[in-house]
Simulated scan of single mutants.
Amino acid sequence: MPLLTFSVSAQTARHVLGVFAGATHFDSETNSTFGIEYEYRINPQWGMGAVYERTPDAHHHDGVTVALASAFYHPDQHWRFGVGVGEERVGGGHPHSETLYRISGNYDFHFDQFGVAPTLAVDVIDGDTAYVAGIAFTYAF
């Protein structure tokens, strides 16, 4: 019998760490995207967090990174909707940065402390729109 047992469900955890894999569609190009995300749950309905994503072949193979802060609303234990603001950085021979605004949604399938969340996000960058779709694998603690 263990001396100490510690179990946190995804619904009661304060911290959620995730990895993301998917694709970004922008300007008739679709490229692989991967990233990490973190959310701090203020209470069962509200959270705040950060996202970092990398799309290495985007913008004609110059590569794009996205870093943003988001606020999240959880109407129930599965759905999560977010709004965020951050920066898109384009690399290559002519590097530059733009302000990025994101609206996102996902549906979490919980397995104790772990989760799988199909995700869709819409980014607005300097009047243009990019679509990000994929899956996040999360760990709540």
Results as ranks from 00 to 15, higher is better:
M1P: 13
L4M: 11
S7I: 12
Q11T: 14
Q11V: 15
A13F: 10
L17Q: 15
G18N: 10
F20D: 04
G22H: 02
A23T: 01
T33C: 06
F34V: 04
F34N: 08
G35L: 09
I36D: 06
Y38C: 03
E39I: 09
R41D: 02
I42N: 09
P44K: 01
G49N: 04
V51I: 12
Y52R: 12
A58Q: 09
H59V: 15
H59E: 15
D62P: 02
V66M: 06
A67D: 10
L68N: 08
A69H: 10
F72H: 14
H78V: 02
F81H: 10
F81E: 08
G82H: 02
V83M: 05
V85W: 01
G86C: 01
R89Q: 03
V90Q: 06
V90C: 05
G93H: 13
G93P: 00
H96V: 05
E98V: 06
E98A: 09
L100A: 01
Y101L: 00
I103K: 04
N106T: 09
N106G: 10
F111H: 07
F111Y: 09
V116H: 11
A117Y: 08
A117H: 03
A117K: 09
A121D: 15
D123N: 12
V124P: 06
T129F: 07
T129L: 07
A130G: 03
Y131D: 11
V132W: 08
V132H: 11
V132G: 09
F137N: 03
F137Q: 00
Y139G: 07
A140W: 02
